[in-house]
Structures are given as structure tokens and as C-alpha cells.
Deep mutational scan, measured.
Amino acid sequence: MATKAVCVLKGDGPVQGIINFEQKESNGPVKVWGSIKGLTEGLHGFHVHEFGDNTAGCTSAGPHFNPLSRKHGGPKDEERHVGDLGNVTADKDGVADVSIEDSVISLSGDHCIIGRTLVVHEKADDLGKGGNEESTKTGNAGSRLACGVIGIAQ
């Protein structure tokens, strides 16, 4: 089992970053940390998408990683996509320092995120509470600013 993974985020604009993942036990939580720069100040949706395909930019990554066919939600919700990591918060300089621990994603097994795409979005994720159909699919997080395929790390 891989215990570490990394993702280099890039987009068409100024947004870029490096996100690290570490899972010490196969059924334990995954620590997610790193930094994203070039964002507007505020909240930005942060999700693992189904495919590791960036051939047409971030759009070819498909929908959120959702092997259990659930509705979109927040990272602490029972009803959520596996890939729903909530929001990252950018400061006035456009930098989001990421520090998350998640017990639904994994670096092995059915919820493995390796080979899938991590995406940072234009807007805040409403965590499935926006009151419309799009909220239950995407959290109304808007366009995909930057993305990268999650790969095994040393």
C-alpha cells in the first residue's frame, strides 16, 4: 500500500500549488496538507474528481469521485461524495494553506484517490446545502481553477 501521495495543481491562470497526502494505516485517516497560491481571497471548493484525465484541462477530470452514488455534502457529513473535501481558505495575498484530515478518502482500496484528479474551484462549496439540484452534485463551487493528478510519492 502506498502511504504517501502528492498532487501538483496547475491551471490556465495564476492558480498553482502542491498538496501532499499521507496515510499511516490502511483504514486510518489521510492527512492532506500543502499550499495553493494565486486564488482570490475567501473560500474555494476542494474536491477529488473521478478521473485522472487532464487532456482537456480540468474539465476532463469528470464529476466528483463518488463510488457510493451519494449526494454532495461537506467533509463531516454522512451523506457526501468520497471526493468531497470541503473548502480551502485563501488569505488576502491569495494563498491557501491547506491542513485537512479526512477519514473517507484513502490511498488504497475502494476509496483510493491515487490516479484521480484534485481540483480547486472558483467559488465556495455550499456543502450540499444550497437548496438546488446543482448543490447536491457540485456544491455550486463554480469553474475549475486548477487541477492535477494525484500520484504515489516516496
Rank of each mutant, 00 (worst) to 15 (best):
C7R: 05
V8Q: 11
V8E: 11
L9H: 03
K10D: 08
G11L: 02
D12Q: 11
D12T: 05
D12N: 06
G13C: 12
G13T: 15
I18W: 03
I18K: 15
N20D: 10
N20Y: 07
N20A: 05
E22D: 09
E25T: 15
E25Y: 06
N27G: 07
P29Y: 03
K31S: 12
K31Y: 06
I36L: 10
G38T: 00
L39F: 00
L39R: 00
T40I: 09
T40K: 09
E41A: 12
L43G: 08
H44N: 09
G45E: 08
H49L: 10
D53A: 06
N54L: 13
N54S: 11
T59D: 11
H64W: 03
H64T: 01
L68E: 09
S69F: 14
K76Q: 13
D77E: 10
E78R: 13
R80H: 05
V82L: 13
V82Q: 00
G83Q: 08
D84N: 14
G86C: 06
G86Y: 00
V88L: 13
T89G: 11
A96S: 08
A96L: 00
D97Y: 13
D97Q: 14
V98I: 05
S99V: 13
E101L: 11
S103F: 09
S103K: 11
S106C: 08
L107V: 01
G109N: 01
H111M: 15
C112G: 11
C112K: 09
I114G: 00
I114T: 04
R116N: 03
T117N: 07
T117S: 14
V119S: 11
V120L: 11
E122T: 08
E122D: 10
A124L: 12
D125N: 09
D125P: 06
G128T: 03
K129T: 13
K129S: 10
K129L: 12
K129D: 15
G130S: 13
G131W: 08
E133S: 14
E133H: 13
T138E: 03
N140E: 05
A141G: 10
A141W: 06
G148A: 00
V149Y: 04
I150S: 03
I150C: 01
I150K: 00
I150V: 10
A153V: 10
A153S: 14
